[in-house]
Simulated assay, not measured.
Amino acid sequence: MNRADTHRTPVPGAPAGPPTLVIGVHLVLVEDGRVLLGRRRNTSYAENHWHTPAGHMEPNESVLRSMAREAEEELGITIAEDDLVLLHALHHLDADDGRSRLQLFFRPAHYQGQVANREPDKCHELRWWPLDDALPDDTVPYTVHALAKIAAGRAVSAVGWPA
């Protein structure tokens, strides 16, 4: 056993063995000091909360391809994979299901098309919110955390983990 192993704090209910991560991709679109958020609906997570356009990486898909695909599916915009810039990596321990998630937040250097709500069955509405004011109280908490870290220039953070 190495020294690092003796200082680990076990997470209650966590499975033994190597970690299995769920990878989430999030698009941070900022225009004129405002960030695009969508109000979620008909979802199993954060119903009626505001959140960045987001999704999960699918099998046999890179994170860049995943983010470009989600932008097309949810917003109808086209982003070249080479135009995606990683802003923040958030290692999130989900209190609801105890799963370890790596949430990656990207901004596009360029995109083509007009932003539109292409999934009205999953997103009630899209709205631009000023970044210099408080985001709505019903914004997904880890989204608020990540946007604050991005504004502070922090590339990586973690939430939900025992101290």
Rank of each mutant, 00 (worst) to 15 (best):
R3H: 14
T6K: 14
H7D: 14
G13F: 12
G13V: 08
A14V: 03
A14M: 11
A14C: 02
A16W: 07
A16K: 11
P19V: 14
P19Y: 10
T20P: 00
G24R: 04
V25W: 04
H26L: 06
L29A: 06
V30E: 13
V30C: 05
V35C: 07
V35R: 02
L36R: 04
L36G: 07
L37W: 05
G38T: 08
G38E: 14
G38F: 07
R39N: 02
R39C: 08
R41M: 13
T43G: 04
S44I: 09
N48P: 02
N48C: 03
H51E: 08
T52N: 07
A54G: 04
A54T: 11
M57G: 03
E61D: 02
E61H: 06
R65F: 06
R65Q: 15
A68Q: 03
A68T: 11
E72N: 04
G76T: 09
G76F: 10
I77S: 09
I79P: 01
A80N: 04
D82K: 05
V85M: 01
V85R: 03
V85E: 08
V85L: 00
L87G: 05
L93W: 08
A95F: 10
D96S: 10
D96C: 03
D97H: 01
D97G: 04
D97V: 09
S100E: 15
L104Q: 07
F106Y: 15
P108V: 07
Q112L: 13
G113R: 04
G113F: 14
G113I: 12
Q114F: 05
A116C: 07
E119R: 13
P120R: 03
P120W: 04
P120E: 08
P120F: 07
K122G: 12
E125P: 00
E125I: 02
E125T: 09
W128Y: 15
W129T: 05
D132Q: 12
D133Q: 15
D137L: 10
D138S: 02
T139L: 00
V140F: 02
T143G: 02
T143N: 08
H145E: 05
H145L: 10
A148C: 00
A151M: 04
A152H: 04
G153E: 10
A155N: 03
V156P: 00
V156K: 11
V156E: 15
V156R: 13
S157T: 12
V159A: 12
G160K: 10
A163F: 09
